[in-house]
C-alpha cells in the first residue's frame, strides 16, 4: 500500500490479534500479536505445525470463538471496512458463510452424518438468502455440485456424506462454502486428509475457482509444498506468533528465520537429490501455556546464543520491508548462515 493512497484499507486486515483460552491448566496463549493483510484475488499461505496458532487465527476471523466462553479475542479484524472483533454476534453471523466462508480438514466429520449433502448446501444458501424458495435453492446447490466437478449432481444431492469418496466429499464441502460467492475463503488444511492425486485435483479446483470468483483465499497448512503451489504471500507461525512473512518466492528462496530453515530442512523433496540425513529442528514445539521467555523459538534454535542473552529475554519484533522476520540475528549474519550452512543441506 503506497503512502500517497487515500486511507484505503486492504480487503482483509488483521491488527495485533490475540487469542487466549482460559483452561484449568492455565491460560493458553494461542495467538499473540498477529498482524497481516490480504487483498482480493490473492492467496495467503499460513504455515506452521500443530499448536502454532494457524487454525486459531482463521477461526478468530470467522468469529467462531465467540461461542466458547473461555476464549478471549482482542485486536482488530477488518473485513472490507467492517471491524469484526467489536461487532455484535449477529453481525458476524451474517458475514459467516456469506462474505467469508471456510472449508475444513476432514470433510467426513465436517459434514453432518444425518442430513443429505444437498440439504446441507441448501441450508447454507437459504440462511443468507431468506427469500429464496426451496426449489431455487435446490437448483443452486446442484449447480454448485456440478461446478466443483461432482458427476451426476442431481443424484448425489440426495446422498449422505459417508456415501461420497474422500475427494468428492471435499468437493462437496467446497461447493457448500462457495454457494454464497464468498469474497474471503479460508481453507484449513483442506487436503491433509486426502491422497496426493486427489490433493492435486482439489488444489487445482481451488485455484480455478479463485480465478473465477476473484476471492481472497487463506490457505492454512503444514505442508510447504501446498503453500508453494498456491500462495502469493506466506506467513510462518510458531508458538502463536507470526515469525516470518513475505512474498512466497522470497520466503522459499531466501528464508530468513531459523525455524523456517528447520521446516525446509525437515522435508525430503522429490525435486532434489536424496540427502543422507534430514536436518530437522531439534526438540518439540513449546507449550502455549508456558511459552519460553524471549524468542519462543530459542530453546530449539541452534543460533540463539549468538546474540548474547537477547534471545532468552527479549521477544524479537517482526521487522522488515516486504519480507519481514522476527529474529534477533542481524540480517547480514542471517544471510551468511543461510548461504553457508543451511542452503547446501537443503
Amino acid at each position: 500500500m503506497s503512502i500517497g493512497a487515500t486511507n484505503a484499507r486492504p480487503f482483509l486486515e488483521i491488527k495485533d490479534l490475540n487469542v487466549r483460552f482460559e483452561t484449568d491448566d492455565g491460560i493458553v496463549q494461542a495467538v499473540t500479536g498477529s498482524t497481516f493483510s490480504l487483498e482480493k484475488g490473492k492467496t495467503l499461505g499460513i504455515v506452521g505445525e500443530s499448536g502454532s496458532g494457524k487454525s486459531v487465527t482463521s477461526l478468530a476471523v470467522l468469529g467462531l470463538h465467540r461461542t466458547r466462553s473461555n476464549a478471549k479475542v482482542s485486536g482488530e479484524i477488518w473485513l472490507d471496512d467492517e471491524e469484526l472483533v467489536s461487532a455484535t454476534d449477529e453481525q458476524v453471523r451474517k458475514l459467516r458463510g456469506g462474505k467469508m466462508a471456510m472449508i475444513f480438514q476432514d470433510p467426513l466429520s465436517a459434514m453432518h452424518p444425518y442430513f443429505t449433502v444437498g440439504s446441507q448446501i441448501v441450508e447454507a444458501y437459504r440462511v443468507h438468502n431468506p427469500g429464496v424458495n426451496k426449489k431455487v435453492a435446490r437448483e443452486r446447490a446442484i449447480d454448485m455440485l456440478a461446478r466443483v466437478g461432482i458427476p451426476q449432481p442431481e443424484r448425489r444431492f440426495n446422498d449422505y456424506a459417508h456415501q461420497f469418496s474422500g475427494g468428492m466429499r471435499q468437493r462437496a464441502m467446497i461447493a457448500m462454502a462457495l454457494v454464497n460467492d464468498p469474497a474471503l475463503l479460508i481453507a484449513d488444511e483442506p487436503t491433509t486428509a486426502l491422497d496426493v492425486t486427489v490433493q492435486a485435483q482439489i488444489l487445482d479446483l481451488i485455484r480455478d475457482l479463485q480465478e473465477e470468483f476473484g476471492s481472497a483465499v487463506i490457505m492454512i497448512t503444514h505442508d510447504l509444498g501446498v503453500v508453494a503451489e498456491l500462495a502469493d504471500d506466506v506467513l510462518v507461525m510458531y508458538g502463536g506468533k507470526v515469525i516470518e512473512k513475505g512474498p512466497a518466492v522470497d520466503v522459499f528462496q531466501q528464508p530468513q528465520h531459523p525455524y523456517t530453515w528447520g521446516l525446509l530442512g525437515s522435508m525430503p523433496r522429490l525435486d532434489r537429490e536424496v540427502r543422507d540425513r534430514l536436518n530437522p529442528v531439534k526438540g518439540s514445539p513449546p507449550s502455549l501455556i508456558n511459552l519460553p521467555n524471549g524468542c519462543a523459538f530459542h530453546p530449539r534454535c541452534p543460533y540463539a546464543g549468538r546474540n548474547g542473552d537477547r534471545s532468552f529475554t527479549e521477544v524479537p519484533e517482526l521487522r522488515g520491508d516486504i519480507h519481514k522476520v522476527a529474529c534477533h540475528l542481524p540480517a547480514e549474519e542471517r544471510t551468511k548462515i543461510f548461504q553457508q550452512e543451511v542452503l547446501p543441506n537443503l
Binding site: Q199, D204, V227, E229, V249, F252
Partner: peptide, 25 residues
C-alpha cells in the same frame, strides 16, 4: 507417473512447471 507428478513441490518458482507437468487423474 501420475502419483509422482501430483506431489506438490516446495518451490513457488517452479510452480507453473510443476502444474504443467502434472497428470491429473
Amino acid at each position: 507417473v501420475a502419483l509422482m507428478s501430483a506431489v506438490p513441490v516446495p518451490d513457488p518458482v517452479r510452480r507453473d512447471r510443476a502444474q504443467r507437468d502434472r497428470v491429473l487423474l
